[in-house]
Design a protein around this nucleic acid. Structure first.
Lengths: 362, 362
DNA sequence: TTGAAAGCGGTACCAC
DNA sequence: GTGGTACCGCTTTCAA
């Protein structure tokens, strides 16, 4: 008995085959340039495909190839609020793809060697894609080089490492984050006054770009102000001491901008010196400890770097790359958002929902 | 000859069947509660599924059911910049699902009858889902009722019609948009001064919520200010005349807030009266004509309602609902964003990219 | 250079 | 109640 007794309008590759009275195998070869097809039939097939507006059925293809990709995600344990949200964004966005994408999360502690080890072991384990925060530029470059040799795409999140050869980077446009901070701060400051910028790690591109943006925007919006730049190396104690000394030594401080998530010590220093509401502050990121300062106006605004959006974009780019061989743009910018008194509740509500979902899954 | 001679670790439903030495059909029925299974086997199957951590292969399921859903999207032709972005957001987010989701776009002109007709014909055509801007509450309710009878989910975008029975609504938290406008405006205003709010259509929930948020935040941030509310009915001429009269009649205007996209006429009125930079203005949405006003500071900020994000969220919710029967939350809020001098370029760049992509597809 | 056929995993129909 | 099996559209192997 022939296979196709019931007449049914064949579709896809079979429709083409029937129309030309050839086999599906031939059509397949013609469509995929896989040699072994005569020029003549190849052209006939292509023309017919065009005519029928053939669109390959990805579902069928996936089923047959039964590919499911393992993507390994490496995020630090520090700045938990930020990276938990980023993780949540990845999970959320990956959920429609779960039969194709298997996402495994790793976290590494502050020790830079750990980051290395974590990434290296993923490489050895033969994952199909990696999403990571570049530990630092040179180490990252080495790892990515290895990954490239095995054709494993690497996507950076949160910070870029542009020369490393990563597939793309999803980062929050740090330059413009700095600009926004400057615009908001300028609006809250008196005409005169020194500005203090507390940066994290100045080897980190993310941080230096913020500082650059801040400086340039400040110059554009206002009379010339002097700026003191303090590096805190993401160390709370250093931040506290640095801020304290600066507050005592510098006369006429008109405003402060903290470019990393390390803002609480700075605020504590301000409180200690009794200048908490007198000096307007703009911070970075959003986490529970910062909330009261935003509510009562001690912090005028914080630059929110949309971690869940970064996660979401990263995993979607990975999916498109792995599944459809669509290369993403060389970098994917997320627009930083301004969290202030008026919209704070919205952001808190969002994180709460997120936390709820994550908890449910566990 | 038996089918499975080569020993291969069967997976999925078949693995369960083999482990229990029953047929896949039975396993299927047990897993899906489709009667005709003895209680005993059902439990055995469920336990085994649990043990094997069975996850249905959605790819296979989709292929077999070969469902592909038609989703019809209905957006007005007005406020083109906004709805074009929303459309682009839908297309972008739908692209990974294109073998399952067929999205068709309709646009209707200002005439409310058209909106009706457009939606009704989609219903008749038997689409599987509808995304639309509710034309107005009562009409919407009638249509959604019809849709519900046929179990067709309707998702509202941009404006909600909560009582209509729609599946969910993706809207930009208008209340908080108003709050944000108030916070920014308050920061730019002198201590005293009347505030003017130019609203679009006050029958529109979106608009009234913005006004409410604005009022409440203004009351929170500042000494009591008097507020004049003018309804422009989304008509440029009415907006121009209303603004002009207000500017002439009201002494001591300290700031203005335009809650709809109808801000250009208001700005023209300000220019005509030579008060363009004297009175700080906060507007809504972002479109080319507004750009120069933002660049030169005449408009302090505009409340951007993230149209592409709305589109993206709407289509993803629709996908999850249709494909996985996951009901979305009863409303999906998008956090409005503040576009100012410092981040304007980012938003422009984003729209440019978007436009590029859309053009390429055409 | 071409064709026949197996089968990816799940669903549904039919027979027992 | 249960089992057998065709089939969704595509890829790939093997034989012709």
């Amino acid at each position: 008995m022939p296979k196709r007794t019931i007449i049914k309008p064949a579709s896809g590759i079979r429709a083409i085959a029937e129309a030309l009275d050839i086999s599906v195998a031939t059509v397949h070869r013609a469509l995929h340039n896989q040699g072994r097809v005569s020029q003549a039939t190849r052209e006939r097939v292509l023309r017919m495909a065009e005519e029928q507006k053939y669109q390959p059925n990805l579902t069928a293809r996936n089923l047959r190839l039964n590919r499911h990709f393992r993507v390994s995600v490496h995020l630090p344990t520090t700045i938990a609020a930020f990276f938990d949200s980023l993780r949540a964004g990845i999970e959320e966005a990956a959920s429609p793809f779960r039969s194709v994408l298997e996402v495994e999360f790793h976290r590494y502690t502050r020790n830079p060697g750990r980051a290395q080890a974590s990434l290296r072991s993923a490489l050895e384990a033969g994952v199909h894609g990696i999403i990571a925060v570049p530990p630092n530029t040179t180490q990252m470059a080495r790892l990515v080089k290895k990954a490239r040799e095995r054709a494993i795409p690497v996507i950076c999140v949160s910070t870029d490492s542009p020369e490393s050869g990563r597939l793309t980077a999803v980062t929050p446009h740090p330059y413009y984050g700095g600009c926004m901070a400057a615009e908001v701060l300028a609006a809250s400051m008196r005409k005169r006054g020194h500005v203090v910028v507390m940066a994290g790690d100045l080897e980190n591109l993310n941080q230096t770009e913020k500082v650059r943006g801040f400086m340039e925007m400040l110059a554009r919006t206002d009379a010339n102000r002097s700026v003191t730049l303090i590096e805190t190396r993401d160390d709370p104690e250093q931040a506290f001491k640095g801020a304290l000394r600066c507050l005592r030594e510098t006369p006429q401080i008109g405003g402060m901008y903290v470019t990393s998530a390390n803002s609480i010590p700075v605020l504590q220093a301000l409180r200690k010196e009794d200048r908490l509401y007198a000096i307007p502050v703009v911070t970075t990121d959003l986490f529970p400890e910062l909330v009261p300062y935003l509510r009562d106006g001690a912090v005028r605004a914080t630059i929110y770097q949309c971690p869940e959006m970064q996660g979401s974009l990263a995993i979607r780019a990975m999916y498109q790359y792995l599944m459809e061989s669509i290369a993403p743009p060389s970098c994917i910018g997320v627009i930083p958002q301004l969290v202030m008194k008026s919209n704070l509740e919205l952001y808190l509500r969002k994180s709460a929902e997120q936390a709820g979902k994550t908890a449910m899954r566990e």
